[in-house]
Design a protein around this nucleic acid. Structure first.
Lengths: 170, 170
DNA sequence: TATGAAAGACTCCCATC
DNA sequence: GATGGGAGTCTTTCATA
């Protein structure tokens, strides 16, 4: 709002592809429902079908749209339980990180993992059927790698969940 | 593995719809790429196109497939920074929760929010361009609601990210 | 912008176990 | 009777002019 700067493209080699407000609105719609017909999108943004389709393709080629996926209901898929696990290690070595990465990659219950600043080194988001299954995942992890601390936070209720990131900074 | 029970359907009114290993494999593919042609899926699972399509439709109608969405690259969309915020409140009232829910709903940078057990009451996942933007979101929150504790965990690196939940418990 | 060709999605009906 | 396969129609995508 208070920033009139020309806006940097960020980290990428900067091919200086720009996107405007129409692209934002198209993205917003596709982030809600990726098989919204191009025709419907074009009408909503006040464009004819073809140029609208061209913009979508351009965003895909630029890598702005990473892909399209089906979202599965956790409860109906019998994995209603979401657990966040904060973990810390005393082994601050590149080899440990490598093995940690390999470990979480092969556990499908681990949906997300981030390396953090601060006291907690990593945070994981895990989806499991119940506490017993969670315990199995937990054991599988501490069996393979040393952790100095593991702190489980059980989700009792999902207040918000969206895969749609804000487009206003485009 | 060690559980030979007939498997409960969970919380829903239990229409007792069952899904088999073929459905699992179809789901796996659609969770990776939702516009994989039905034909390609059918070949992969050893079925002809029509019954394969029927299975997909059935999973959609059952609500197992919630929808299909486009995934946008955070970095290219200029929101490269992911922050987890652990918050606690001293106001354990239904009205506070209601207002909290409304608040996070209107902040598009808040992608996810969960109510937790344990010492931390809620955890939020937020996507922003930089620390300044994060601070703006933070201020917007504490301006509107009382928190007894707010603990920000900044992500330095995304080790894993997938929207594909495990299908082996189906 | 409009037209058209090609591909894929969806429907109906028949065959089979 | 439930499930899989096959042919035909129709929408949607994509490349012309």
């Amino acid at each position: 709002m208070t920033d009139p700067k020309p806006r940097k493209t960020g980290s990428k080699p900067a091919e200086s592809i720009t996107f405007d407000e129409i692209d934002q609105r198209i993205l917003d719609m596709l982030q809600q429902d990726s098989d919204t017909p191009v025709q419907a999108i074009s009408e909503a943004v006040g464009l004819s079908a073809n140029p609208c389709w061209r913009r979508i393709k351009r965003m895909e080629e630029a890598g702005l749209i990473k892909g399209r996926v089906a979202l599965v209901d956790q409860t109906r898929a019998n994995v209603p339980l979401t657990v966040f696990i904060g973990v810390s290690t005393s082994r601050h070595e590149i080899d440990w990180l490598k093995r940690f990465r390999a470990l979480i990659d092969e556990i499908p219950e681990v949906l997300e993992a981030y390396r953090l600043t601060g006291t907690v080194d990593y945070i994981l988001k895990v989806a499991v059927p119940d506490m017993a299954s969670y315990d199995a995942v937990y054991k599988r992890m501490i069996e393979r790698l040393e952790f100095s601390q593991v702190n489980s936070m059980i989700s009792m209720e999902e207040l918000k969940f969206t895969t749609a990131i804000p487009t206003k900074y485009l």
